Each structure stands twice: as C-alpha cells, then as structure tokens.
Simulated scan of single mutants.
Amino acid sequence: MKPSKEIRILLADDEPHIVQFLEMGLVNEGYTVRSAPDGMSAYGLAMDFRPHVAVLDVMMPGMDGYHVCRMLKEAGNAVAVIMLTAKDEIDDRVKGLTIGADDYMVKPFSFDELLARIGARLRNQFPDLLGEVALGPFKVDDRRGEIRYEDRLLELSPTEYELLKYLVLHHGTVQSKAIILDKVWGYDFGGEENIVEVYIRSLRDKLGDKEHKLIRTLRGAGYRVDLP
C-alpha cells in the first residue's frame, strides 16, 4: 500500500539486522523511514524528523524506549508510539501504556502484524494522511470504504471490499485460500475454504473479469491480482 501523502516513521532498535529488515519493508510500502541505534539518537532524530509513528525498542543502550516515549509525549509531539520488547510481562505493558505509548508488540513479531499496527495508529490519529490509494486501474479509499475500477465505483459488500482491497494491495503475489481467510475473515473463522471461491467469483462478475486475467487462479496455490 502506497500512502497518498508522506508518512514518516522512526525506527529505534540496537539490533542492526532488525532495523535493516523493517526499514527495507516499510520503505517498500511507501513510507519515509529514519532509524536510530539508541534512545538518545532516536530522540534527537525525532525532534528534527517529526515522525507520525515511532517504533521504539524498550531495551536500548543509554536511554531506553520508555524514556524516549515519555520525552516525546512531554514535548507535545503528535506522534503515535509503538513499543517493542522481548518481554511478555503485563507490568511492562502497563508501564509503557502509562507513560503514553499507543501500542505494544512482543518480539518476535511478523512484519505484516507491524504493518497492521502502524495502519491502525495512522487511521486512529492521522486519518487525513491515508486518503486514496491508486494502484493501476484501482483506486482504494479506505476512509470511505470504496473501490473504483477504471473510474467506476464498484458496488461491494463489506467482505467483498476487504477481499478485493487485500488482493489489490498485495498485487503480484500469490495468496492462498488459508492466508486470505486469515487476513480477510479472521483467524477464528470456522467456515470452509470454499467461501473464498464464492467471493472471488462475485468479484470477477463485478469487475467484468470473465477471462480471469485480472484475478488469476493458480491451481494448488491460490489467487493473484495482476495489474497492467
């Protein structure tokens, strides 16, 4: 998903391989990213960079993530703070939330989960930044819950909207039925995988994709949206 406006994200972690991996992924998603190896550097960078979201590791040399979070909030910065920790203790979460952290993630975590948490914070605290996302012939407006295809507004049910949005935003990659069920219907969905086929068929009808060139079926693997 490519944000419609510049969205700035600050990463602070003393593990270089984690920072490199996250920075590469976030830049690929269209975010503007800066990183710091310790708390003091992170705070100084934040004063100049003015991030919308700060992802802070709790355990950093010199100044820990809690301290950085507290200073950012006390400085009046309009920044959403996501804390990262290797611990899964309730007391640690309470401490982070008490000093102003907006969310909390325990290592190890998936990149998709971090993306989801960042997206949630942006929708909550900076809704005007997300706007409309244009990808090929599609325009996805998450604020209005609308998708246009070749400038034609599609009449979609809520589930059709979420499914098409997911496939379009992950265009060029194969999505299995299991992954689609997890991402669109939720991990606790108790129905059959065939429900995905039913919704794919409905989307193809509404897109006029009779030859399945837009939403392709890869037998035994899943579905893939190919954009011109």
Rank of each mutant, 00 (worst) to 15 (best):
Lys2Leu: 08
Ser4Asp: 10
Ile7Leu: 05
Ile9Asn: 12
Leu10Asn: 08
Leu10Phe: 01
Pro16Cys: 13
Ile18Arg: 03
Ile18Ala: 06
Phe21Gly: 09
Phe21Asn: 09
Phe21Ile: 08
Leu22Val: 07
Leu22Asn: 04
Glu23His: 09
Glu23Ser: 12
Val27Cys: 14
Glu29Thr: 14
Glu29Met: 13
Thr32Trp: 03
Val33Gly: 10
Val33Tyr: 01
Ala36Val: 04
Pro37Ser: 03
Asp38Ala: 00
Asp38Val: 08
Asp38Thr: 03
Asp38Met: 03
Gly39Asp: 07
Ser41Cys: 01
Tyr43Gly: 06
Leu45Asn: 10
Met47Ala: 09
Met47Pro: 02
Arg50Trp: 13
Pro51Lys: 04
Asp57Phe: 00
Asp57Met: 02
Met59Val: 11
Pro61Thr: 14
His67Tyr: 12
Val68Pro: 04
Arg70Lys: 13
Met71Asp: 06
Leu72Met: 09
Glu74His: 11
Ala75Glu: 07
Asn77His: 13
Asn77Thr: 13
Ala78Thr: 11
Ile82Gly: 08
Met83Arg: 05
Leu84Val: 05
Asp88Leu: 14
Asp92Val: 15
Asp92Arg: 05
Arg93Asp: 15
Val94Met: 07
Gly96Cys: 11
Leu97Phe: 01
Leu97Arg: 06
Ile99Trp: 00
Ile99Ala: 00
Gly100Lys: 00
Ala101Pro: 04
Asp103Trp: 06
Tyr104Cys: 09
Met105Tyr: 10
Pro108Trp: 01
Pro108Gln: 08
Phe109His: 04
Phe111Pro: 11
Ile118Val: 10
Ile118Cys: 12
Ala120Asp: 03
Ala120Ile: 08
Arg123Val: 06
Arg123Phe: 05
Arg123His: 06
Asn124Gly: 15
Pro127Arg: 05
Asp128Ala: 13
Leu129Trp: 00
Glu132Asn: 06
Glu132Arg: 08
Glu132Trp: 00
Ala134Pro: 10
Ala134Leu: 09
Ala134Lys: 10
Gly136Arg: 05
Pro137Asp: 02
Pro137Gly: 07
Pro137Asn: 04
Phe138Ile: 01
Phe138Lys: 01
Glu146Phe: 10
Tyr149Gln: 05
Glu155Gln: 14
Glu155Ile: 14
Pro158Glu: 11
Pro158Ala: 06
Tyr161Met: 09
Tyr161Glu: 11
Glu162Gly: 03
Leu163Trp: 01
Leu164Gln: 03
Lys165Glu: 14
Val168Ala: 01
Thr173Ser: 10
Val174Glu: 12
Val174Asn: 01
Ile180Ser: 01
Ile180Ala: 03
Lys183Glu: 15
Lys183Asp: 15
Lys183Met: 15
Trp185Pro: 00
Val196Gly: 05
Ser202Glu: 06
Asp205Cys: 14
Gly208Arg: 02
Lys210Arg: 13
Lys210Asn: 13
Glu211Met: 11
Lys213Met: 13
Leu214Arg: 04
Leu214Asn: 00
Ile215Trp: 01
Leu218Thr: 09
Arg219His: 15
Ala221Phe: 12
Ala221Gly: 11
Gly222Phe: 02
Tyr223His: 05
Tyr223Phe: 00
Tyr223Val: 02
Val225Arg: 06
Asp226Lys: 06
Pro228Tyr: 02
